[in-house]
Structure formats: structure tokens, C-alpha cells
Write a protein that binds this DNA or RNA. Structure first.
Lengths: 320, 320
DNA sequence: ATCATTTACGTAACTAGTTACGTAAATATA
DNA sequence: TATATTTACGTAACTAGTTACGTAAATGAT
């Protein structure tokens, strides 16, 4: 059958189809009990007969419809002499609803129908191994905890991050090192004098001074970079800097992979303390640094204008 | 929450709502993968990309939609450059469909999406006790075996048959005995001379000759009757006759209750063999007689025109 | 007391499906 | 070979919901 082939992508369709099948039968069931209601009136009718709510919006929230839907249903029910409307005296906006004598008659007669439908469904469910009613409840709960979208996003991230490789810098990544950094700097700030020099000459400014650069490859394309710059006479061993991930490769966990790799690199070089400068506007970056264990500090004055937060990470007793 | 209060009557609504919630997310998921498809196109797209079917009606049956639905979806997909149409050469009615290069590109890119969605849903389902996917399958199967309507009908019958009382004839049921029989005779045939006499004078024609009459009461109203008429010199003890149930009280199992009661009565009177006459047009009646154990026989000639079948039941060795 | 905001609800237009119906081509039948 | 039936599919109109928007009443803030 179609659904078993397509898989879970079609869960929505499958639910819709079963639902349609049930409402079709519902139509006939009302006839069976000679209850002069249309299935789509039922939720509204139920709330009114239970005496719970009696204004359009309140009913809509109670039954999980939009208010225009309730508005239309009520109009039909008024035409069918099931419900009467009357303006609220103290609040002229509200449309108070009430069952007519005919409506109350139906409410009495429908009790047997409730009973029989409940029993019929329960009898069917009792024959199943996986109870549909309970399954719906559980699934609805799971989705309210975390939406399907977020669950899929996470799967995507997990799958794609497996395709990310972190490799040491090589001269052929010089262009990428520049442009990846330029991309984010120009999005949020503007390039400064220091940027042009350091980014243009990573070998001279970073590697030759005892620093390191890691590059993240996705399908063999450089999509992220990060550098460790040697620091002297500051109490820090390295500055974590020039961290950049292209927006094209978002949602693949690249920042996190790169961050963990660069910290690991520092650790393997015997570093005890690393430092970084950033800007609080860059929330995802700050979140990442916190996850890596960095704590806010007041450090030495920065040459960069865009720096408004400084952080450090002690490696003697790493948090992770 | 609403659904737990209303109970299983709202199963249809609940399914519809979950389905809507899922399709909303689906929209966003397509965006996430930059797949230029609308969720409602998906089933058609899937069938085409799998190379299974490629005409409107065939796709419609495969995915369980109506053909106009597929027709409209295809029109949209053509506008979106996903699909091209071309007339079948040998059969001018058929509209052969094919993915465009763009469509094939999407088919390739969507693979990852299948994977992630499947995993996301399966991961969620794994956290539930009642698996929604399997529950749907089981429930769909149960409904295909016996529809919800029939299940409800049965519950109704069971509940209502408990309110039916079978009591012996009393003079105050004389009117009912006549009119209940008149009702069905006039619906299918017409009243004959014998009917007028026997039905008008049950005491004289039936009871005083050693016969018996049972009356079915529903909410203290007579809704069915049935008689045992003493037979002599025929090899039979009684004729089961004048069985009538008003159409107003259909679907309450009254015929069955009355039938079993009258057979029981005959048995308690020491009868060995009962006889009856009927007409094959009255299928529900014939079915009932068969359930009670009656077998077709060729009996003595009947005084009634409408009789075209004769049956007997041996009580020495009752089937039930 | 006045003005801005929020709330209640109706109307209009849209969506994703449906059924009903018509037409042309293909197939079956006399 | 002519005619009836079936099949494929498009169009129109309907259904049960939605979102978008407007208006009047109530409420809150200055």
C-alpha cells in the first residue's frame, strides 16, 4: 500500500484520510439516531449542551477552531433552530448562545448515541495492539514538547555534521580564510584595518608566530575556519579568533565541531588558558563559546572596535 | 482537554487536527531543504519520481485521491515546471506525465529529507508506548473489516434489545396484534381474507385452539408479535405465524428475541416439530428463521397467496 | 476625559479536498 | 459496421476549514 512505501512523510495524509472516512460514517450515524445535527456542528453543540461556554470566541478556543469557523457553524445552527443568539447586556460585543427547545431535545436524545459510539470505538480499540486513541495523545504530547520541524532539523544536523571534516590549514585555503571571515564581518559590522592585514596574510600573522588554523570542509568545500593566535606576556597561551562559518552551511553543527576541535588543538599543545573577543550581538557565537566552557572576563584592551565582550577558558580542569 | 471530555465521538476531529498540524510543519520542512514543492504535491510527486504511474487516474488511485484532485495538482506542478504533460500516442484520452529536469533535480535532493523525516518520526514514535503508525494501520484494518457505522449499529441493537420485554398475549394487545401484522402485509403484499379473520379474532382462532401468542414490548409499547398456532394431523405440533415487528422499532434485535422466545415456548410445550410459511422476498425474516434452525421443506398447500416458501424446525435435537 | 490598545465577532477571500457532470476516445456488443 | 458502454480527464460547484481584515465595544493609560 502507498503509505507503507512512502513512509512517515505521509503521516499527515494518512491521518487526514482516516479522519475523512470517520466523518463520512458520522453523517450516517446521526441519521441512525435521527439526530438532526451535522457532524461539523457537533463540537459546538457539545460545548453548549454541557453548559460550558456560550460565546463565539470562548467556544472556538474550547474546541480548538478559529472563531470564524464557530461563527459560521452557529449561523447554520440558528437556521436549523438548534441555537438562539442574544446580545450580552453588559458587554455589547458578546454574542450569547443558547440551545433552543429543539436543541435541548436533541441533547437528550443524543446521549444514547454517545454511549454507543464510545462503546463501538472502544470495542474496536480493544482489539488492537497499539491503541489509536492513546497513540494520538502520546504523539500530540511529543509534538507539543518539540515540534516535528525541530525534530527534523535535528536529524538533518546530525546527518550533515557527519559529513563535515576538520582539517589543518593549507595554503590553498587562503582565499576561503579571507572570504569566510569577510562574510560575517560585513553582515554585522564592517571590515577594520586589522582584519585586512591578518586575514590577508594568515601565514605571516598567525602560523609563523606559533598559531594554528583549522578549516571545516563540507563535501570538500571549505565552509568554516577558526584560528588559535599565540599570545605572549598576558597569562593566556592562545587567542581563539577568526572563527567564521558561512551562512550557506548553517544548521550542520559546523561551529560546534570547529570549536571543539580548536579547543582540543590548544589542549594538545599544552595550553592552559585561552582567550577570545566577540560581540554580544552574535548570540549563536556567544552560546557556542559558553557551551565550550568560556566565561566572561575583563581582559586587555582590544584593537577591534566591534569587540564588546571578552571570554576565557581554563584548560587545567576542562569542563568537558 | 476537550477530547478527553467528549470521548470517542470526536476521534475524527482529533485526527483532522493532528493532520493539519503536521502539514503546517511539512511546509516549513520543505523550505528547510530548499525543496520547491508544496506538501500537497508530494503524493503525486512521489509516485512520478518512483516511476510507478504516470496518468492522472492511475496516480489518483495509487495515492487514494479523486482524479480531479490530481488533475489540479498536476496543473500547479506544470506551472511550477516540475512536470510536463504529453498526450499518449496510442490512447488519446490519456495524459502522460513526466518529471522535468527540475523535477528530477528535486527528486534527487529530497532523498535526504525522506531520511531525516523518517528518522525524526520514528525517533518520536519510539518514545511512545502506543505507536501511532501501527495504531493507524490496525484501526484502518478494523474499519475495512467492519465500518464504524456497522459497529455503532450493533452497539445500538445490543443496548436496545435489553429494553425489550417479551410477554404473553393479553386482550389489551388485540389492536396491536392486528395493526402490527397489517403493517408489514400491506407494505409487501395485500391483506387476504384469512388475515382479516385470524388477526381480528386472535382469541378465537389461535388461543382457544391451543395456540399461543407472545408480544414484544419496547418501553411498554407493543412493537412486535408472534404466534404459535396448533396444528393437527400434519406431523407438526405448531405453526409459527403472525410474526410482525414494526418498522419503527427496527434494528433493536426484536425479531430475533421474539423468534427465540416463541421457539422456547414451543419447546416448553413439548413440541417436536414446528412449521412456518413465508415469502422469499422477506429476506430478513428468512435469515432469522434460518438462524433459528428452520430448514426449507415442501409442506401442505397454504391458504395464503403470498406463501412461496415453507420451513420446519425439529426440536428433538435442537441446533442451538 | 481623552486616546490607545485589546477584545469579540462578522465578512471576505483563500485552501485542499470533494462530488457532479460533460466530452471525447477506446472498447465491447449486436 | 453501427451502437452502447466504459474509461480518462477536465471543469464547475460545493465543503469545512483557514487567514486577513474591518468595526464596534470595552479596557487601560495618561
Amino acid at each position: 500500500m502507498f503509505f507503507n512505501q512512502v513512509g512517515k512523510m505521509a503521516l499527515g495524509s494518512r491521518l487526514r484520510m482516516l479522519s475523512e472516512r470517520m466523518t463520512e460514517d458520522a453523517q450516517l450515524i446521526y441519521q441512525l439516531y435521527q439526530v438532526d445535527l451535522r457532524p461539523k456542528w457537533f463540537p459546538v453543540f457539545y460545548v453548549l449542551s454541557a453548559g460550558q461556554e456560550n460565546t463565539i470566541t470562548a467556544i472556538a478556543t474550547a474546541i480548538g477552531h478559529s472563531h470564524p469557523s464557530v461563527s459560521k457553524i452557529v449561523r447554520e445552527m440558528v437556521a436549523g433552530d438548534i441555537v438562539v443568539e442574544r446580545k450580552d447586556e453588559s458587554d455589547g460585543r458578546k454574542n450569547r448562545l443558547e440551545l433552543t427547545p429543539k436543541g435541548r431535545g436533541i441533547a437528550a436524545r443524543i446521549q444514547d448515541q454517545y454511549l454507543d459510539v464510545n462503546r463501538a470505538v472502544e470495542e474496536a480499540l480493544a482489539q488492537t495492539h497499539h491503541n489509536l486513541w492513546k497513540a494520538l495523545e502520546e504523539f500530540e504530547f511529543l509534538l507539543s514538547e518539540r515540534s516535528l520541524l525541530r525534530r527534523v532539523q535535528q536529524q538533518k544536523k546530525e546527518r550533515e555534521s557527519k559529513k563535515v571534516k576538520i582539517v589543518p590549514y593549507e595554503p590553498r585555503y587562503r582565499e576561503a580564510f579571507y572570504s569566510l571571515n569577510e562574510e560575517w564581518i560585513n553582515t554585522y559590522f564592517k571590515m577594520e584595518k586589522e582584519d585586512l592585514e591578518t586575514l590577508g596574510n594568515p601565514k605571516e600573522y598567525i602560523l609563523d608566530n606559533g598559531g594554528h588554523i583549522l578549516v571545516a570542509l563540507y563535501e570538500n568545500e571549505p565552509v568554516g575556519v577558526c584560528a588559535l593566535i599565540k599570545m605572549k606576556n598576558t597569562g593566556y597561551d592562545f587567542e581563539l579568533a577568526k572563527m567564521a562559518v558561512t551562512s550557506r552551511a548553517k544548521g550542520k553543527g559546523i561551529g560546534s565541531l570547529l570549536g571543539r576541535a580548536i579547543v582540543e588543538k590548544a589542549r594538545s599543545l599544552g595550553a592552559k588558558k585561552i582567550y577570545l573577543e566577540s560581540n554580544t550581538q552574535l548570540t549563536p557565537a556567544i552560546n557556542l563559546y559558553q557551551k565550550l566552557g568560556f566565561k566572561k572576563v575583563v581582559g586587555p584592551p582590544s584593537p577591534y572596535e566591534r569587540c564588546n565582550i571578552q571570554m576565557e577558558l581554563e584548560l587545567d580542569n576542562p569542563t568537558r
